[in-house]
Amino acid sequence: MSVIEATRQQFHKSNFAQEVVKRLVVSPQYHDLFYSWSTTIESFSNVLAAIVAVEAPDLLDVRPVTEHVLLKALFAAYCPLFIKQIQGNEELTHSQQILMSITLRVANDLEDKVSDPQAIKDIKLIKKFAAQSQALTVAALREMRSMS
């Protein structure tokens, strides 16, 4: 990748992250996740933009970042994080954990509002993955307790 191409991609990621921040700042239902964790909205948005740049680069140029665009971006980022979590090789960072939590919240918020068949499928998958993720977490906690 040339320096010019890398700079262009960084510019797109930065603009997308900035649009996500604008979207989340006006959505108080997500603020508690940032106040209870040591991760800022800006850090979270940069992580999301970095993952979206790899998983769904076309979304970096979509404006405005509506709830539906945010759902698509979150879903694109959620899938590789879910795989990372179930593989268990590495712990998720705070930003990645917040990303998974916000993805589920956005999916729950939009569940009754969307009519797009792909968005409905994505929401169902997010909820299914979240249930599996929670089951894995509970199983890991039980295993840790039984060892001590």
Rank of each mutant, 00 (worst) to 15 (best):
T40G: 09
Q9D: 04
E143V: 06
A6T: 08
V69W: 04
A77V: 04
E67C: 01
V69M: 03
S95G: 15
C79W: 10
R63H: 06
I51Y: 03
S36T: 15
L136P: 00
A140N: 11
S146W: 02
A49K: 09
Q96F: 00
D32N: 13
D122M: 15
S43M: 12
A76Q: 06
A50Y: 00
T93S: 15
F129R: 11
I41H: 04
D109V: 04
Q10F: 02
N89M: 11
M144K: 15
F129T: 01
K13N: 09
K127T: 06
L141T: 08
T40E: 06
I41P: 02
F44W: 11
D112K: 13
M1V: 06
S38N: 14
H31Q: 14
P28A: 09
S146E: 14
V114D: 03
A139P: 00
A17L: 01
Q18C: 03
Q96T: 09
D32S: 14
F129P: 00
H94Y: 01
I4P: 00
S148K: 12
F16K: 05
R8H: 10
I98A: 03
T7Y: 07
S38Y: 11
R105G: 07
K84N: 04
Q9I: 12
V3K: 09
A73R: 04
V54N: 08
Q96V: 06
S115L: 08
M147T: 11
Y30P: 02
T7A: 15
S148T: 07
N89P: 01
A6E: 14
L81T: 08
K128M: 10
A131K: 14
A131D: 12
T93V: 03
K84D: 04
L60N: 03
S115D: 12
A135L: 11
I41F: 03
I98N: 08
S148F: 11
K127W: 02
T7S: 13
I41Y: 02
M100E: 06
M100Y: 01
E91I: 01
A73Y: 05
I123G: 04
A17E: 04
F82M: 08
E143R: 13
V138K: 11
Q10M: 09
V114F: 07
A131F: 08
Q134F: 10
P64H: 02
T137W: 02
I51H: 08
A49S: 14
T103W: 03
I83P: 01
F129A: 09
P117F: 07
F82D: 09
V3L: 14
F34M: 06
Q132G: 08
A119F: 03
W37C: 12
I51R: 14
M144V: 09
M100T: 15
S2L: 04
D112E: 13
A50N: 15
F34R: 05
I51E: 10
L99V: 10
C79A: 07
V21K: 07
V20A: 01
L71P: 06
